[in-house]
């Protein structure tokens, strides 16, 4: 679990770290859509360069980012292989028995894997450069218009910030309980699947019990400090939109146009 990069925050100081979280959220949102515009070598090349530039600007070690890909790598390889065998377009390159590999399959496979990679890099970059708290603040602020449609924006944001806050705490607790049960002879990592699932019970029950207790304590503590819902609250952390944020979004729009122009 220690090696997982997904969803973690690396506190550093860089251009990307200093951007407004709303800008970054919008950016990733639009970027995810834009990635689907690419459909040939040139457009994928442009996207890859753009993504590398973003990583460079965030000062995050590329090697570290790649190491964190390991859990998703299997998925990427799997789709790649599926495409090679199942897409039957273009020229036939190779044939052995019932296995036929077509040029189109190879190309499609490479493109789809590339798309995966780009998406994962950019979304990891968002969480790596933005603290969970500012992500929630950003989301709350972006969702505000939906309040008119009776969406409980404040409550959603509150739940999200509480969940984010407790992810590391719960991870620590999971590890602690796991170790305590291992010290009592539990075996989480070997044996047949049925046994392994059964071995999870001594881990899951204490985790749920303590989550319930924690929720109760937290609710009491919040009430004692005068929390009574979202009405009439002021904000401690204020988001600040600067020229840089506008610039980043403009660059993204520009990228979209370039891709649109270059796609075949």
């Amino acid at each position: 679990m220690e090696k997982m990069v997904f969803g973690r925050y690396l506190p550093m100081d860089s251009l990307v770290h200093r951007l407004d979280s709303r800008a970054k959220l919008l950016f990733v949102f639009v970027y995810v859509a834009i990635v689907f515009l690419a459909n040939n070598v040139v457009t994928y090349g442009v996207l890859a360069l753009f993504t590398l530039l973003a990583i460079f600007l965030s000062k995050i070690n590329l090697r570290f980012l790649i190491a964190g890909l390991k859990p998703v790598l299997w998925l990427i390889i799997f789709t790649f292989v599926l495409h090679i065998f199942l897409t039957k377009q273009g020229d036939l390159l190779w044939k052995a028995g019932w296995i036929e590999i077509y040029e189109g399959g190879l190309k499609q496979g490479a493109f789809i894997s590339m798309r995966f990679l780009l998406l994962i890099f950019m979304t990891s970059l968002l969480t790596l450069t933005t603290s969970p708290i500012s992500i929630t603040d950003g989301l709350e602020s972006l969702l505000k218009p939906f309040k008119k449609m009776k969406l409980p924006v404040h409550e959603l944001a509150l739940m999200m910030s509480i969940s984010l806050r407790f992810i590391p705490t719960l991870m620590d607790e999971t590890e602690k309980i796991m170790k305590a049960q291992m010290a009592r002879g539990a075996d989480f990592s070997s044996g047949p699947i049925k046994e392994r699932i059964k071995a999870m019970i001594p881990l899951l029950i204490p985790l749920f019990v303590s989550a319930f207790k924690r929720a109760e304590d937290l609710a009491t503590a919040m009430e004692a400090r005068g929390y009574s819902g979202g009405e009439g609250r002021t904000k401690y952390r204020l988001l600040k939109w600067t020229a840089k944020d506008t610039a980043v979004l403009l660059v993204l729009v520009l990228l979209a146009f370039v891709l649109f122009y270059l796609r075949s």
């Binding site: 010290a183 009592r184 002879g185 539990a186 001594p202 029950i205 204490p206």
Partner: peptide, 26 residues
């Protein structure tokens, strides 16, 4: 045998007896 900090967090069985037996039976 290790008794961790706040070991009460590791209890999970329906009865105290079963929980005590968990270690030895493992």
């Amino acid at each position: 045998g290790i008794v961790f900090q706040f070991p009460e967090h590791q209890l999970f069985e329906e009865t105290v007896e079963k929980d005590i037996c968990y270690g030895p039976m493992n």
